[in-house]
Design a protein around this nucleic acid. Structure first.
Lengths: 146, 146, 146, 146
DNA sequence: GTGGTCTAGACCACC
DNA sequence: GTGGTCTAGACCACG
C-alpha cells in the first residue's frame, strides 16, 4: 500500500486582466500562468487557486477561468482532478526549454524581418535591442508589462 | 504602338493568402501590401489591382479585398478615387520612417518581454539576436519571407 | 498573387449520440469523428458540418458540438477558421499510424492483462480473440457498435 | 505465545493510488482489490484492512475507502459485519469464472472494435495480440502490472 | 452564413 | 469544498 501524494503549497499568484488588451480574458490568464510556470515562479506540485476562487478574484465568470485551466491542461502545464483542485504538472526540463525558446525565437524573428523590411543594418538592430533592453528594464522596475 | 500617357504603372505584386495563418485574410493582405509600400517596392503613384481583380486572383471575396483597401486607406497608405482605381499614396519620408521604426520597435519589445518572462538574461537575448540574424540572412538568400 | 484554396467537399457523416453511454456527448462526437478521420473515411480537406448544423442534427446544444470541434482542433485533427467553417486537417501518415496503434495497443494490453489475472493461457487468449472477431463481424453486419 | 484462534488472516495487500490515472481513487481501490480476489491472491475469509487503516495508508479520505468497500460489497466480493471488520466473501467458483471471462471478453471486444475503427485487418489484430503477449510476459517477469 | 468570446445557471461526480 | 457536463442566450469578428 504505497502512494504518491503530498500537500500542494498554494502561494499567491498575481494575475491581472486588462480590458484594453484585445486578447480574450481566458488567453490572458493562460499566458500569465504559463509564464509563471516556464519562469519557474510556479513549481511543479504547486496548487493553483480553484476555478471559482480565481473567477471571484478576477471578477470574471467561472467559465472563463475553467477554459483557461482546461487549455493549460491540454498543453500539459497543469493537472486537474475532480474534487482535488488543480496543480502545476511535472514538466520535463527539455520541454520547458523548448517552450521558452519558441516564444522568444518567434518574436525575435519577427523583429529581424521587420528590420530587414525597414532597410536597417545588423548593427542598427543590435542598437535597437540594447535600447529596448534599457526601456524594458525601466518598465519592469516601475512595475508592469502593459 | 504603345501609349505612354501618365497613367500609373501596375507591376505584379506577389501576394498570397495562407489558410494556416491564424491572421484573418484581410489582415494578411493589409500587412503584405503595407510591407511592400514601406520597403519601397511599391512606390507612390503605383496603381494597385482593383478590388475585384485582386479578389479573383486570391480566390477570396470582394468584401475581403475591400476591407483591406479601406483599412489601408484609413492608415494613409493608399488612395482610392471613383473611377480612377487605387494608387499608393504619397507618404512623407518622415512618416515612412516612423512606421518602419514602430514595427521594429514593437517586435523587438515583444521579443525582449518574451525573453524576460522566460527568465532569460540579456546576454542570452543578444545571442538569440545573433542566431536570428544568421538564420534570416540565410532565408532571404534562398528567397522569401514566408 | 497565389493562393491555397479549394472548395471542400461535404459528405454526410453518420454520427449518433447514445444517452446510455456514460461517455459525455462531446466525447462521443469527438471519438466518432476521430475514428472517421483515422480510418480514412474523412479525408483531409473534407468540410465538416457547421457547429450549429451538427447541433441541430444531434439534438444537442451548439456548445456541445463546439467543444468537440475545439478539442479535435487541439489534437490537430481538424482546422477551423472564423467564417470559413471547419475542415479535416492534413495529418502526416506517420502521426495517423501512431494514433491508430495507440488505441488498439492499449485495449489489447488490457485484454492480455485481464487474461493473465484470470489465469488463462496464451492459447485461450488466441481463441477468445477469434471468437471476438466472429462476434464483432456479426455485429457490424447487422449495423451497430453499441 | 501466539494465539491461534479462528480469526481471519490479514496479509499485506500492495495497493497503490496513482494521481495520473484518470480513474477516480475509489475505483482504483475497487479494481485492484477485485483483481486480487479474482486472481485468488485474496482468498475467501481473508480479512481486509479497516476503512480507516486503509485510508491512512493510502493518504486518502475514509469516505473514499468506504465507497470502495461499499461498492465491492454490493457486487458480492466482500462482506462487512458490525464489529467484525471486512472479509473476502465466499464466491462460487462459477461466479468467479464468469467475472473473469467477462473482464477478458470486454477488453478483447474493445480491442477488436478499436482495431476495426482504425481500419486494421484481422491478421493485423492477431499480430498485435502476439506482440502484446510478448511484451506483457516481459513485464510480468520484471514484476508489475503498472 | 460561419466560428469566437463571455455571460448565467443547473445538476452531477469526487473527495 | 473541488472540478465536469450541459443548458441557454448575447454580442462580436470574419467572409
Amino acid at each position: 500500500m504505497s502512494s504518491e501524494r503530498a500537500q500542494p503549497k498554494q502561494p499567491r499568484i498575481p494575475l491581472h486582466l486588462s480590458m484594453d488588451d484585445p486578447e480574450p480574458m481566458y488567453r490572458q490568464i493562460e499566458s500569465q500562468l504559463r509564464d509563471f510556470i516556464l519562469s519557474g515562479q510556479l513549481e511543479p506540485g504547486t496548487r493553483l487557486p480553484s476555478m471559482r476562487a480565481l473567477a471571484k478574484d478576477l471578477l470574471c465568470s467561472v467559465i472563463t477561468t475553467r477554459r483557461a485551466y482546461e487549455d493549460l491542461e491540454g498543453e500539459g502545464f497543469i493537472r486537474t482532478r475532480q474534487g482535488m483542485g488543480t496543480v502545476v504538472a511535472e514538466i520535463p526540463e527539455e520541454t520547458m526549454a523548448a517552450y521558452r525558446r519558441e516564444a522568444v525565437d518567434g518574436a525575435m524573428g519577427e523583429a529581424v524581418r521587420a528590420g530587414r523590411r525597414a532597410g536597417l543594418t545588423e548593427e542598427e538592430l543590435r542598437d535597437i535591442l540594447e535600447e529596448t533592453l534599457q526601456r524594458e528594464v525601466a518598465n519592469v522596475h516601475q512595475g508592469g508589462t502593459p
